[in-house]
């Protein structure tokens, strides 16, 4: 049984001119537990929207997103929030660390909406990503590479079964991007979490064994759509 299965997923946006624009049309997509998959695609191809729908941040118009056989899209919003907190880790291109919180607090905050705060595990994660010494630093006191490491630790805070990574190296230089990608993949593997990564960076995608063109899955014409 796949960890993630998507069936007949469609999502439309309303354009400023009032017309409906089909952004996602994914007839089927699936991932096994622990699998690491990269999706490539141009900017505006709907990759971010796809991840938002998978995470339950955005509702789909039609179709199903089955995570561990539970239909994310069929759930009421509070249940989707709970599922996201417990089972999905999210790594953003812009890291999205909360500036008012220290590195450790950012990781603990990731835990607080899920199964519960586990401080020793948070410290263990910081140690794993090489940021234990910066636990009391605020994000603004860190380099972009260091911020990305904290974001990785936060994404793994609730021992998720699926980690979604949206252009996770987009703000990093080539050297740090390769390091960050290796770290994300390694930590996901160690935590037995599946990884679904989207990027348009071919160099990063080459490092992935399983890399798929998103347009092979998404039948919508999203040339001018919001992504």
């Amino acid at each position: 049984m796949p960890l993630l299965e998507i069936i007949q997923l469609k999502k439309k946006y309303l354009t400023p001119s009032g017309h409906e624009q089909l952004v996602l049309d994914v007839p089927s997509f699936s991932m096994q537990a622990g699998q690491q998959v990269a999706l490539s695609g141009e900017s505006g191809s709907g990759k971010t929207t796809f991840l938002h729908v998978v995470a339950g941040i955005l509702p789909a118009d039609t179709g199903s997103v089955l995570l561990n056989e539970r239909d994310v899209q069929g759930m009421p919003e509070p249940m989707r929030d709970q599922l996201r907190a417990n089972h999905i880790g999210y790594i953003f291109q812009t890291f999205n660390l909360l500036q008012g919180y220290t590195c450790l607090e950012n990781v603990l905050l990731g835990m607080s909406f899920g199964p519960g705060v586990d401080r020793p595990y948070a410290l263990q994660l910081l140690k794993r990503v090489g940021m234990e010494h910066c636990r009391d630093y605020y994000p603004r006191q860190l380099s972009t590479g260091q911020q990305q490491r904290i974001a990785v630790a936060r994404a793994l805070a609730n021992r998720p079964s699926l980690v979604l990574a949206d252009e996770p190296t987009g703000n990093l230089d080539t050297k740090h991007a390769a390091e960050a990608l290796a770290l994300i993949r390694a930590t996901c593997r160690e935590n037995e979490a599946a990884l679904l990564l989207v990027s348009h960076d071919q160099m990063i995608l080459k490092a992935f064994g399983a890399c798929h063109d998103f347009s092979n899955f998404n039948k919508a014409n999203t040339g001018e759509a919001k992504a």
């Binding site: 995470a55 941040i57 919003e77 509070p78 929030d81 709970q82 996201r84 907190a85 417990n86 999210y90 953003f92 999205n96 660390l97 909360l98 905050l109 990731g110 909406f113 899920g114 936060r154």
Partner: peptide, 10 residues
Amino acid sequence: ILRALGARRR
């Protein structure tokens, strides 16, 4: 960000 981490609206 909090909502993306799983914080409910309430």
